[in-house]
Design a protein around this nucleic acid. Structure first.
Length: 482
RNA sequence: GGCCCGUUGGUCAAGCGGUCAAGACGGCGGCCUCUCACGCCGCAAACGGGAGUUCGAUUCUCCCACGGGUCACCA
């Protein structure tokens, strides 16, 4: 058992966005690479933003993607509880300890005063920052206000001078002047901690060795560092990951209507492909390999490969990767996955859907585009006879009509309706007429599909459609061309 | 605005003082082929700008520009 302990600490918002999932992935990989422990912690200290069922989505996603946590609210563990709202007393105790140590203080300022303060600061173009009104209250004053039952918060006491320096495994040494840091609230008036505080306390108490999170926390990291120092706790290794972007200017987000993990799955992407793709978004294994199973990712993962700049989520590359995964599937497995989509598009019972799936597998990138590939099997679409004209096949309306008229009796006379038999009969015809393959096969494919592009050629499609339907469509072609 | 961080082709990215600056996706062209797709081959396409340091900078330093993040009793 390794000693690395990482955690994924989402707040239950009811939505697993791609950036979040990637953070979970990296935390998981980092732990597993070392044979360490991956922990799930729910950060629900914001009572107003609680969403019902949100935690279930988190469990479901982690289970589905194989990012199995070793400790968490659902499975327990030695350092629980793993839900922050159940740890209320813990935070209070540590907040008070910090007050004892002089690294934090009671603040009785009410919302009105703070709003006003902010307004004044904004108006005078000052950086908005707590003015330290309660920073130097005497012990007696504090006691008195406490006794009077005045609501309070506990704020962090940031040193007035000097600077805070810390190491980030991705970004290196980062130094921040203390006077640019604010005396943030640690414990809210409802008795619950802020994220800033709960995070530090929990990460320490849970023995987290590597804190993996997004760069949005990079600028708060100095404050966390100061907290660790005040407690005399060992500082974890920070691993800040750059954001996943929708485009050069916007993060991927629910607000922008961007796809979440669930949306991608619903759209017909394979979970393995999604995981593989996001692993490569913001991290590079260094070598040429691009397709990785989860265990392979565990093997290959290294913090040094995490990039510093944001990366744009590229759907076209995901599509390609998904196609790669689809092509590698066992035909049976692909058929099972494709089935719901095939059922939606094909209603006629005589079509062999497994055979359709076999045709589809090499040319399908996302499951959801199956219907548009196969809709013509169900019902011959209205089509323009222009489709019969193809320069490379050297076909036009006239010779297509001739071809179909030659084809019809051949097919009618065929008793054994298999791909082999069709192939044999049609190539015999081609030979007898002494023409190029395309001259016969192109018109057949058009007649039978009514489309410019189809999965499979004329012979394959005819096999699928069955004798009766094929003959009907060839006749229809003859009618249209006559 | 203050503070922090970043900047290699359209996108993901390798590179860690000397390279004709990888590779992948996408694009384009070709081959294969009964269409499309798959597969194979090839082409175009990048170090934001300026000063230094150095025999030599994409790589190190500084400045600028641009981009991102953060400045809540949200996480």
């Amino acid at each position: 058992m390794g000693s690395v302990r990482t955690r994924f600490a989402p707040s239950p918002t009811g939505y697993m966005h791609v950036g979040n999932l990637r953070t979970a992935l990296y935390a998981y990989l980092l732990a597993k690479k070392d044979g360490g422990t991956f922990i799930l912690r729910i950060e629900d200290t914001d009572q107003e933003r609680k969403v019902e069922g949100a935690v279930d989505i988190i469990y479901k996603t982690l289970a589905e993607t194989g990012l199995a946590h070793d400790e968490g609210p659902d499975i327990g563990g030695p350092v629980g509880p793993y839900v922050q709202s159940e740890r209320k007393e813990i935070y209070k105790k540590y907040a008070l300890e910090l007050v004892e140590k002089g690294a934090a203080y009671y603040c009785f300022c009410d919302k009105e005063r703070l709003d006003e303060l902010r307004l004044v600061q904004e108006a005078s173009k000052m950086p908005s920052k707590y003015d330290g009104h309660c920073r130097n209250l005497s012990k007696e004053e504090v006691e008195e206000k406490l006794r009077a039952g005045i609501p309070y918060v506990i704020r962090q006491k940031i040193p007035e001078s000097g600077s805070t320096v810390f190491e980030d495994a991705v970004f290196g040494t980062i130094s921040t002047p203390n006077d640019s840091l604010d005396d943030n609230v640690l414990l809210k008036s409802d008795g619950l901690p802020t994220y800033n505080f709960a995070n530090v306390v929990d990460d320490h108490l849970m023995g987290i060795t590597h804190v993996v999170r997004g760069t949005e926390y990079l600028s708060s990291a100095p404050k966390y560092n100061l907290l660790y120092e005040a407690f005399g706790w060992e500082i974890p290794i920070y691993v800040h990951c750059p954001p996943v972007m929708k485009d050069a200017h916007n993060k991927l987000s629910k607000r922008n209507g961007d796809a979440s993990y669930e949306d991608l799955i619903a759209a017909g992407y394979l979970k393995e492909a999604v995981l593989n793709y996001i692993a490569l978004l913001g991290w590079s294994p260094g070598g040429e390999q691009e397709i990785f199973t989860l265990p392979e990712l565990v093997q290959a993962f290294d913090i040094s490969g995490i990039s510093k700049s944001p990366s744009i989520f590229d759907t076209s590359k995901l599509r390609w990767l998904n196609g790669e995964y689809i092509r590698r599937l066992e035909p049976k497995v692909f058929f099972e996955m494709a089935k719901p989509y095939l059922d939606r598009a094909i209603t006629s019972p005589q079509i062999d859907k497994e055979a359709v799936a076999a045709l589809l597998q090499p040319r399908c990138e996302v499951l959801s585009d199956i219907p548009e590939h196969v809709d013509f099997l169900d019902c011959l679409p209205e089509y323009d006879t222009e489709l019969y004209c193809h320069k490379k096949m050297k076909t036009n309306r006239e010779n297509s009509l001739t071809a179909l008229k030659e084809i019809l009796p051949v097919l009618e006379g065929l008793s054994d309706w298999t791909q082999e038999a069709l192939h044999e009969a049609l190539f015999a015809l081609i030979e007898r007429l002494g023409v190029k393959n395309g001259l016969i096969l192109w018109p057949l494919r058009v007649a039978v599909s009514g489309k410019a592009f189809t999965p499979g050629g004329g012979i394959e499609l005819s096999t699928l459609l069955g004798k009766e339907e094929t003959l009907r469509r060839v006749q229809r072609g003859i009618e249209l061309l006559s």
